[in-house]
Write a protein that binds this DNA or RNA. Structure first.
Lengths: 243, 243
DNA sequence: TTCTAAATCAGAACGGCGTTCAGGCTTAGT
DNA sequence: ACTAAGCCTGAACGCCGTTCTGATTTAGAA
């Protein structure tokens, strides 16, 4: 990598750093090419040497942020013993919420309308990160499946219900796992996402003063619906003992 | 109401109608005072006679849309017999999803970032509609409470966990209902909101081709977690019979 | 080493936006 | 009939993304 490429990478990084700073400090509207250039001592049009368009910059930001979210969530999950399934699900869910509250603008960028007039590219702005999220949840669902299977048969799912890309990867990573388990993973995702999204966008604050308690109760109810609970988590060698 | 006031109301309605049209046709960015004025044969600044600022117009739109959403959801719920609790919850949930998919821009307006640079007023843009939503869900939770109570004791909730305004109204409308039931209502809200939000924002389309099935399975799982199911719904006079 | 082409930047320009302001015209109420 | 309020235009200010021209620098080939 020559000097030129090094400078280019450095400038690109600086643009992204300032964009992130403006995003967290002034909200999505503060992310403007002109403002970034102003802070860097450059003209706004100069940024077009590094990003084809503003949307390209936003897409890059989404990718970075989504990746950092997954790093954090996966780390939290892996900090819990592999056989403590309920604990791993709890860790994932709590990490997801804490990250979202700590990075509300990032959450909006990933899951909401990123910024004014942004149009995501085909296939989504961060396909790999989304796939990682889906696979991470599928791993949790797969671990819980032996316990939860009996309760999850109300709807029959086929592999054809899912995108070929996802189905293939899941079948490779988790052979023998039925498609209903993938549906369960997506539903677990939705269940966590619902309360977090309401909270980040301020819809819970007007109703309850303790969203954390609400969210924790939801996670416990999720574990119960999976026939997992703290007892099962602590004694994974003897499932279906309590109740 | 004199002629003047009548004209004023008519112009105000036209502004809102065109704004809604632009919103659904061209997305949030198409809602601009100048564009609205252009279509009405007025200058953009003329609108300031009717709305103090663009955000005020947006707030009004949110109110109208949120109200129409609740009209629809409540109507769907009330089309089901009062003793068919599971059916009423299903109807509410399905109506919520169908409305959201039919009015994605409206959904974004209510639950996401409305438009570029919009800042909601204190107390939220549509406090009454939000309260209606919360009360409607609380009614469902209250009806399901006799069945669900035994399973919902994992976390203890107090009335002080909720905003005084909500707590007072709930205690007036549903005397004897414990605070945990309000928490259940909020969690039901979150559970419906999660998958719908992911779907509206396009995060499910890349994973599954059949979000409707996924959502329906989630609703059934919700009913199961409330110890309600289709049997209970059809024979409300004999609860806890099956399983 | 010299030459050439690419990369990088500034600055003006275009059309869009929300918002403000001065001024003209119309209408309602006294 | 007069006055004050309401309604509207059009220009202006400062913001934005984006494009274009042109100057300067730099990397790689001859």
């Amino acid at each position: 990598m020559g000097r030129r490429a090094r400078l280019r990478a450095q400038t690109t990084a600086e643009i992204k750093a300032i964009a992130l700073k403006h995003l967290s400090e002034g909200g999505p509207d503060a992310v403007s090419l002109r403002a970034i250039g102003r802070e860097m001592g450059m003209s706004g049009s100069a940024i077009y040497s590094y990003f084809d368009t503003r949307d390209a910059l936003i897409t890059t930001l989404i990718n970075d942020i989504y990746t950092s979210l997954l790093d954090q969530v996966e780390t939290a999950r892996d900090a819990v013993a592999r056989d403590d399934i309920a604990g791993r699900i709890l860790a994932w869910g709590q990490a997801l919420r804490l990250w979202s509250l700590a990075n509300p603008e990032g959450f909006r960028l990933i899951y909401g309308d990123p910024v004014a007039g942004y149009h995501a590219p085909a296939g989504g702005p961060a396909p790999e990160a989304a796939k990682r999220a889906c696979l991470g949840l599928t791993e949790l669902a797969a671990a819980a499946w032996p316990y939860a299977e009996a309760t999850q048969a109300s709807t029959d799912h086929q592999w054809s219900d899912f995108s070929p890309g996802l189905a293939d990867i899941v079948r490779k990573h988790f052979p023998g796992l039925p498609p209903a388990a993938v549906a369960l993973a997506l539903r677990m995702w939705g269940r966590m996402h619902g309360l977090i999204s309401l909270e980040v966008y301020g819809h819970l604050a007007t109703q309850t003063g303790d969203p954390a308690k609400l969210y924790h109760a939801e996670l416990l109810d999720l574990l119960r619906s999976l026939e997992l609970d703290v007892e099962h988590a602590r004694h994974p060698e003897m499932p279906r003992t309590s109740t």
